[in-house]
């Protein structure tokens, strides 16, 4: 059974009294340990898609199934259950950490509420081991998010998301605000970690070159529709849709 199945979800926003169809009947399924890249330009609906899957918003129509069942309820308990199997990383890590709390406090909270690890000692052990995995020094844990660089903060966000052993990881443009050298490092670490733990990943990005370098499968979106999806190899060597061809052609290679 697929870890995640998305069936015909549609979503419409109302902006300036006009309807904007952000998602039009998008379907796909994600297997265990699979990394799927979602590519498209601004306004194509790729971030909306992640918001629907993560439950931040509810789709107008269609179903999202996790392990074959629709996650129920909106109360604290069911949300916690949902986020213990599903974690999200955003573009701006500074905004995803509580600015008034030290990094370690945010991580401890995640472990306590989402992974059910209460013992301080055990929490510490897990946090230290994951900090090592993303190549961050321990003393950064006692800092506030604003005292870290963008790259450090994003690596801390990855560690925080992965340490609770989620099954699904949703990444929304996680390296777009970073320099290429940092991006390269983060992608390597992320790939190693998700492969080790067999986490399924949806990796949203506008950069098709980046996505092609490490995703197993690619979905191309345009104006809220999925125009093409398939294995990375097929899309790279024989793209079917005209738009995919345009996207590939727009990459300015060295």
């Amino acid at each position: 059974m697929s870890v995640l199945e998305v069936r015909n979800i549609s979503h419409t926003y109302i902006k300036n009294k006009q309807q904007i169809h952000a998602l039009k009947s998008v379907s796909f399924s994600l297997e265990k340990g699979e990394i799927m890249g979602v590519v498209g330009e601004s306004g194509c609906g790729k971030s909306t898609l992640l918001k629907q899957i993560s439950g931040i918003e509810t789709p107008d129509s269609g179903d999202i199934l996790i392990h074959g069942s629709v996650p129920e309820g909106k109360n604290l308990k069911s949300r916690r259950k949902r986020y213990s199997t599903m974690q999200m990383i955003f573009q701006n890590p500074l905004e995803s950490f509580d600015p008034r709390r030290k990094i370690i406090t945010s991580m401890e909270e995640n472990l306590r509420f989402l992974a059910g690890i209460i013992s301080k000692k055990e929490q510490e052990k897990i946090i230290y081991s994951y900090m090592e995995k993303v190549d961050l020094k321990k003393d950064l844990l006692l800092r506030y998010p604003r005292e870290l660089s963008g790259g450090q903060c994003q690596r801390a966000a990855i560690a925080r998301a992965i340490m609770i052993q989620p099954e699904i990881l949703l990444c929304d443009e996680i390296t777009s605000a970073l320099d290429v050298i940092v991006q390269d490092k983060i992608i390597r670490q992320l790939k190693e970690l998700v492969r080790q733990q067999e986490i399924s990943v949806i990796f949203v990005s506008h950069d098709i070159a980046l996505v092609s370098s490490f995703c197993d499968r690619i979905m191309v979106m345009l104006n809220g529709e999925c125009v093409e999806q398939g294995n990375t190899k097929d899309i790279m060597t024989a793209p079917q849709s005209e738009y995919t061809k345009v996207l590939l052609d727009s990459v300015l290679e060295l």
Binding site: V180, I181, Q183, D184, D207, I208, A209, L210, S212, S213, T232, K233, M236, T237, L248, V251, E253, L254
Partner: peptide, 23 residues
């Protein structure tokens, strides 16, 4: 692009994501 000498330039060029066309 073909023969950079400074280690930083080399690191920068290596880190640029490239389309994976060959399998």
């Amino acid at each position: 692009l073909s023969s950079s000498e400074h280690p930083y330039t080399q690191r920068l060029l290596r880190a640029v994501p490239k389309l994976k066309r060959e399998y």
